[in-house]
C-alpha cells in the first residue's frame, strides 16, 4: 500500500483513454463505452478498499 497504487490508477486511466479513442475511431461506440465503464469500476473498487482501510485505521487509532 505504497505509491504503486497511485501509479496503477494512472495506468488504468491512461489505458482506458487510449482504448476508448481506438474503439471510437474504429466505429464501435458501444464497446468504447463499455470499456470506459469497466475501467471506472475497476478504479472505484480499488479506491473503495483503500478508503475502508483508512477508516479502519482511524477507528483503531482514535478508538472511535
Amino acid at each position: 500500500m505504497d505509491v504503486n497504487i497511485l501509479l496503477k490508477i494512472a495506468g488504468v486511466g491512461i489505458l482506458i483513454a487510449v482504448v476508448h479513442q481506438i474503439l471510437s475511431k474504429a466505429g464501435r461506440e458501444d464497446q468504447a463505452m463499455m470499456t470506459s465503464l469497466a475501467g471506472m469500476i475497476i478504479v472505484l473498487t480499488m479506491v473503495v478498499t483503500e478508503i475502508s482501510n483508512l477508516f479502519e485505521t482511524v477507528r483503531t487509532v482514535f478508538n472511535l
Binding site: 490508477i9 494512472a10 486511466g13 491512461i14 472505484l44 480499488m46 479506491v47 483508512l54
Partner: peptide
C-alpha cells in the same frame, strides 16, 4: 497527467494520495 487524459480519474488519485 490524469486530468489531461481522463478528467474523472484525477479525483481518485487525489483521494488515494490523501489516504497514503
Amino acid at each position: 497527467v490524469l486530468k489531461e487524459f481522463k478528467k474523472e480519474y484525477a479525483i481518485y488519485a487525489s483521494i488515494l494520495g490523501g489516504i497514503i
